[in-house]
Design a binder for these strands. Structure first.
Lengths: 344, 344
DNA sequence: ATGAAAGCGCTAACAA
DNA sequence: TTGTTAGCGCTTTCAT
């Protein structure tokens, strides 16, 4: 591959002049510039970003690590990040940790080695801090997205899981439900913890006793987990009259279970979902959900990150937390419970 | 950030020795190795991949450019690519062209600048070759995935769209359908062209006249396009008795249109889809589809690419084309047409 | 407006 | 087993 030296020779100038042309430096005569550009063209010259980054210490690259690339929630974030990055002259390296801390560590290491200028991360395990401290101690700007890391103060953009789950649960309670099941992701993920928190808060407020058998922590946020747990819930001796799906994958699993058990929504069972399931809501808008604008999350997180990258100037110490309020979208998947067991 | 020199000083050895430790060179005494490792640990040393790549000309990075990151078809490919890359000591930079040739060009340029060792690409426009020739002329191994570039012989992994579409159409014909609508992506995408080709072939074989008004080329493979075109097809004076969705997004749009027009599947209208719609098939497995194993596509494409990266030795000239046969999954979205207009 | 020298952080090739 | 020298492709600094 042609180097700057090849171009310089071909154009009959010094490498420095070629460098100036590449970087649009003004101190190059029109004449020289054209000569150089032609040489570059003829040689098919492509600047070496490795050499450039090595010397300038600016790679203009952002790293984005999402925890599940097959979940459209995250890929929509990715689009938001990417669009915003490009708009600001940055490129994005997208990595998928697959909810696996080891993979995540691997990618953090990779991004650090590649000297990205900042990282956006949705952590696979919110209780493990080591890898995160690695990033911070090296002064690489970091913005968490969707999830938090317990015990660490880091810039973060997320939607309010507690409040969203509260609203969703409150909505069910107002319809008369007293036994509400919730199927959620693993405890190591902060959104799972928060959503259960919001759920509990709503129950408490209404003086409804909380039953542990109705709270199902999954091993993963996955369709499979949603399905298995839903089957268990629905075959309980005293099954819930409504089920809360902790994210879109879980909800899909729940819907499958309900179908296989030949139950009808909302007549036999009510269902709500934290996060939209696009394909279903487009073809048959019946599911009541808490809807998050993940594209905006991506945009906002990137803007925040770029802010840090540029201005170490302003308030380096104080933490930026941006909370987006998710929206309750009421459709037709909920009714009042059949047997009126209302205590009040 | 600490450099190799800092480590060398701290450990009291030469940089070369540190380099050897980093690269697991055997000619380092256990004692020295430990000293160096400790120094690295204490300094939080992270090797600079830019410097390393600059000198070795090996970055161990693959570039993957997909055309729509929010389509699970592509993200599943991405997982296959990533898993295979990691298994072979490579990392992946995932880029999303968003079906936009300009973005795609931008990313190709980026990957080339970053000196990735190979590229896997699902081209946004199969008729434009310039950017592709850029890659080839620089001898960077390239494998096309899912789509082809017209007029260029390049390694490629894809599923057989012609045959898949043929099977799907044949299935409808066998059920008695004569007026079959097809809603497909734009002409610039080879899978769209191929699927229409398979569709036409099936019609021809059965001596069914092909009506242009039943073939709808979209502006994009998108839900919106599927929806709009389905509405048009279904409100035709003489509407089709079956509709073929060109990919999963289009199918979702079609299902929405059918629902809004209050038609029943399969009583009023039959539907088939090229590619699975997971969320729908899991919750309610009624849709008859051609199913593709996109994870395997990712794996195979990566293996092929690594083959090229390693052994420029074997058969540099002869093209590798790997065709995966998609599978017809018959469910319940098709019936025989009501009015029996069979001509034969 | 242009160029020469030095060096970014690392490794290949050789020497010791 | 360890170190020295040179240089990857580029930019910074300083001359001219």
């Amino acid at each position: 591959m042609a180097t700057i030296k090849d171009v310089a020779e071909k154009a009959g100038v010094s490498v420095m002049t070629v460098s100036r042309v590449i970087n649009n430096n003004k101190y190059v005569s029109q004449e020289t510039r054209e000569k150089v550009e032609q040489a570059m063209e003829e040689l098919g010259y492509i600047p070496n970003a490795l050499a450039h980054g090595l010397i300038t210490k600016k790679t203009h690259v952002l790293g984005l690590i999402v925890s599940d690339i097959t979940n459209p929630f995250f890929t929509t974030i990715a689009r938001g990040v990417e669009d915003t990055a490009i708009k600001n002259g940055f490129n994005t390296i997208l990595c998928n940790s697959d909810e696996d801390v080891e993979k995540e560590e691997r990618y953090i290491e990779l991004l650090l080695r590649k000297r990205v200028e900042g990282i956006i991360l949705s952590p696979a395990d919110c209780d493990k801090r080591r890898r995160i401290e690695q990033i911070i101690s090296r002064k690489i700007p970091l913005v968490l997205i969707d999830r938090r890391i317990s015990g660490l103060q880091i810039d973060r953009v997320y939607s309010d899981s507690i409040n969203g789950a509260y609203e969703l649960t409150k909505y069910l309670i107002d319809l008369g439900h007293r036994r509400i099941g919730i199927i959620i992701g693993p405890r190591r993920i902060s959104t799972a913890v928060d959503r259960v928190e919001g759920y509990k808060r709503a129950l408490q407020e209404e003086g409804i006793s909380m039953e542990e058998e109705l709270i199902r922590w999954g091993k993963k946020y996955s369709r499979e987990d949603g399905y298995l747990n839903a089957i268990e819930l629905l075959t309980l001796e005293h099954p819930p009259t409504a089920i809360f799906g902790g994210n879109r994958l879980i909800t899909v699993g729940i819907l499958r279970a309900i179908r296989e058990l030949k139950l009808r929504i909302p007549d036999d069972i009510s269902v709500v979902s934290f996060d939209e399931v696009e394909d279903i809501s487009v073809t048959n808008p019946f599911l009541t959900v808490i809807s998050q604008n993940s594209y905006v999350m991506g945009v906002v997180a990137t803007e925040q990150l770029l802010e840090r990258i540029r201005g170490n100037n302003k308030s380096p110490e104080d933490l930026q937390e941006i909370v987006l309020q998710p929206r309750l979208v009421i459709r037709k998947s909920c009714g009042s419970p059949k047997e009126e067991v209302m205590k009040e």
